[in-house]
Design a protein around this nucleic acid. Structure first.
Lengths: 361, 361
DNA sequence: TTGAAAGCGCTAACAT
DNA sequence: ATGTTAGCGCTTTCAA
């Protein structure tokens, strides 16, 4: 096999009969080069198919970046715990390369804590921020502060409408609602009635939940306009919502239930406790309670948001952008993964492989 | 923020009052170091939390590897075309880093061509091989030749039983069959009858197809032992199989059909042409014909093997192993992805994000 | 406008 | 057993 030798700056310099300093100036358009030389160097670079060695470049640049990772406190919240499982190695990998990733937590129940953590981040003067904001208004305000200071922001998990961050990384909520509606339609009779349930939150602050509902309904409107369905917002307190569900099931003869969040286990548990089989239940996220109920047959489908991969992808994307100048997509939408009792294992064991599209280069 | 300075070999040397050469010898266990010095250096390395700079290491190692990528000729085979879509950039990325990836094609219909290409690879004396063998016996023989020459092999897409390659990368066929059975069960009545169809191939040579069938049946046996089903091997010629299907549908009142390969479109097309709605059809792979029928409602579910990601992951895994000495999993099983009319778009646009577990570091 | 040279952190050959 | 040094390919400073 003919091994083509890699071409280096030195080769260009030799062929163009100039010094490597000159070549460098041309390649980086730093000026102070005569047009004639510039032309010649460029030609030769193309001719010998010069590609810079990113390792050498990264080595010599040796720049340090401070990244603020702005996220809900994972303790006690399984979804966010999953998000950071195993990401220590990713973080320390990038640390080696000069990315200092600092974590800033806020409480998912406390807007104040979000604002406070946000102030800390701003004060730390980061080179970039990765954030997942559960609060619409506060998230927007923080984003604007970053913009004012020219700090690039990657938003993941939860969209904030109308913003144009460096990149949004997550899943398409609207589309995921459509998928849920499709699965319900496939698993039911034409005359069955559906329910869409939200658990009490300030819906204004939960654009995701509304988008999921919108998607769900858009599918029904489009594919089976005769379908009957109801929409309910349930109180989050067990005592209340259990009564509400009971009443609903008695009155409405629901065949299938779509819950707009990971709280779908509250429905599954109710059905399990009261031994009500035969209802198709769909919700979000592979939390342990949800998976248990999936296994027990009281939830049929879960839509996986793959929080761990979202974080991984966010860090990777930002790292490659800062360190290697890789272009960045303004939107990275994850596949909408349908999880069932039978395939969830394959998703858990290797969410990284599927999505680990992680390439180390 | 306190920026902790990265520790380098030089720092260890200074603190241990030895030269960097000695430190290097300790860190790489190259011997020729007194026990006392060794002990001291190790202690200090741990104390200052030394992590080698992989960039500098990769730069100086600067070794060239020849990799043989041994795969079916993609031209005219959409699955394999997908597998190599966009992988040029990955390949050229690694080329920069010293991985020379040479492609060797064989014809999926011609065992002889497999053997010939195999000989070529052996002759080229590669440092490692990545292969997808559609032929059981020939694949085994080639694998053994590599072993004899201590050439590590990564096998992807199609397993060869009983081998222990450096890594197997692909999906669990058995489990995917179970998923198909589950989906059918969820979308049908208890008394409906299922069909499992194989399209004519030498089944001996297709362990995947048999594994998928085995998985399918194992699920039924386990979860609904009363379920009626039939298994058929159909002739691949349109004229023949159309008659066979017709007969089958007339005689057996099938509600749902599971096809063990990407040829599921042959069933979908038949149903479409003959305007037979209401049958649940499940098969494999996101080829254009399959997707068209998914869209038209004559296929309900496809299981995605994500060929592109498999290739990406194979190259990444091998590259990181060779270049950075990363540990390697003997098995990397992908998530079993359920594709429907509504979510296929999200899978096509970004199969890389989900699985792009590719991290560049 | 150009060239020379130092140095990023590491490895490995060579000298002592 | 230990130390010294060249050099991987690139960027950047300084001198000419």
């Amino acid at each position: 096999m003919v091994t083509i030798k890699k071409s280096r700056i030195k080769d260009i310099a030799r062929l163009a009969k100039v010094s490597i300093g000159t070549v460098d100036r041309v390649l980086h358009s730093r000026g102070r080069v005569s047009p004639h030389t510039e032309q010649k160097v460029k030609e030769i670079a193309i001719k010998i198919n010069y590609k810079p060695n990113i390792l050498a470049r990264a080595l010599v640049i040796n720049k340090k970046y401070n990244i603020g990772l702005f996220i809900p406190q994972p303790n006690g919240n399984e979804y966010w715990e999953q998000a950071f499982e195993n990401n220590h190695k990713l973080i320390s990998k990038f640390e080696q390369l000069g990315l200092n990733i600092e974590l800033y937590y806020y409480s998912a129940e406390n807007k104040k804590s979000f604002e406070e953590a946000g102030q800390k981040i701003i004060k730390s003067q980061p080179n970039a921020v990765i954030m997942a904001s559960l609060f619409l208004h506060e998230g927007l305000s923080f984003y604007n502060q970053c913009c004012d200071r020219s700090i690039p922001v990657i938003i993941f998990d939860t969209t904030i409408p109308y913003l144009e961050p460096l990149s949004f990384i997550g899943i398409d909520s609207f589309q995921s609602g459509r998928v849920a509606a499709e699965l319900m339609t496939l698993t039911s009779h034409k005359k069955d009635k559906f329910a869409i349930l939200h658990f009490d939150q300030e819906l204004v602050d939960a654009p995701q939940m509304l988008e999921r509902e919108r998607g769900f309904i858009s599918y029904l409107d489009e594919k089976c306009p005769d379908r009957k369905y109801i929409v309910r917002v349930l109180n989050n307190k067990q005592h209340y919502y259990q009564n509400e569900i009971k009443e609903m099931l008695e009155k409405d003869k629901i065949s299938s239930i779509f819950v707009s969040t990971a709280k779908v286990y509250q429905i599954g548990s109710y059905l399990q406790q009261n031994k009500i089989p035969g209802i198709i239940v769909i919700g979000y996220d592979l939390t342990s309670k949800n998976i248990q109920l999936l296994n027990d047959g009281y939830i049929q489908f879960l839509i996986n948001e793959n929080p761990r991969l979202q974080v991984e992808q966010s860090i990777n994307t930002l790292g490659n952008y800062l360190l290697y100048g890789e272009p960045i997509n303004s939107k990275i939408l994850f596949p909408i993964e349908i999880i069932t009792r039978t395939n969830f294992n394959s998703h858990i064991s290797n969410s990284s492989a599927s999505h680990q599209f992680a390439e180390k280069v």
